[in-house]
Amino acid sequence: MVAFEPQSQPEPQGPACQNVRGWERLLSLGGGVLLAILGASKQGEQGRRQLGVGGLLLMRGLSGHCSVKSAMDDPLAEIRYLRARVQRLQELVLMAEEVADRTRSAPVPPVPVAPVDIVTPIADELASREQSR
Score class of each variant (00 low, 15 high):
99 V>N: 04
18 Q>C: 10
51 L>A: 14
122 I>K: 09
106 A>V: 09
62 L>A: 01
38 L>E: 07
56 L>W: 08
124 D>G: 02
97 E>K: 07
68 V>L: 09
125 E>D: 00
30 G>R: 06
81 Y>S: 05
13 Q>M: 15
80 R>L: 12
109 P>C: 07
61 G>W: 01
34 L>D: 06
74 D>S: 05
5 E>S: 02
40 A>Q: 06
48 R>C: 08
107 P>A: 03
58 L>E: 01
5 E>I: 07
31 G>E: 02
131 Q>L: 09
101 D>Y: 10
46 Q>F: 12
90 Q>R: 02
14 G>T: 05
71 A>L: 07
27 L>E: 03
7 Q>T: 12
93 V>R: 11
49 R>I: 14
124 D>N: 07
86 V>G: 10
66 C>R: 05
75 P>S: 04
114 A>N: 10
47 G>V: 04
121 P>C: 05
31 G>A: 11
57 L>I: 06
121 P>Q: 07
100 A>K: 10
40 A>N: 11
93 V>I: 15
6 P>F: 01
25 R>P: 13
74 D>N: 08
23 W>H: 12
29 L>E: 01
60 R>M: 02
101 D>Q: 10
72 M>P: 05
115 P>W: 04
50 Q>I: 09
17 C>N: 13
72 M>G: 04
63 S>M: 09
100 A>T: 14
61 G>V: 04
30 G>K: 03
20 V>I: 15
60 R>N: 09
42 K>R: 05
44 G>D: 06
44 G>T: 07
50 Q>S: 15
50 Q>E: 14
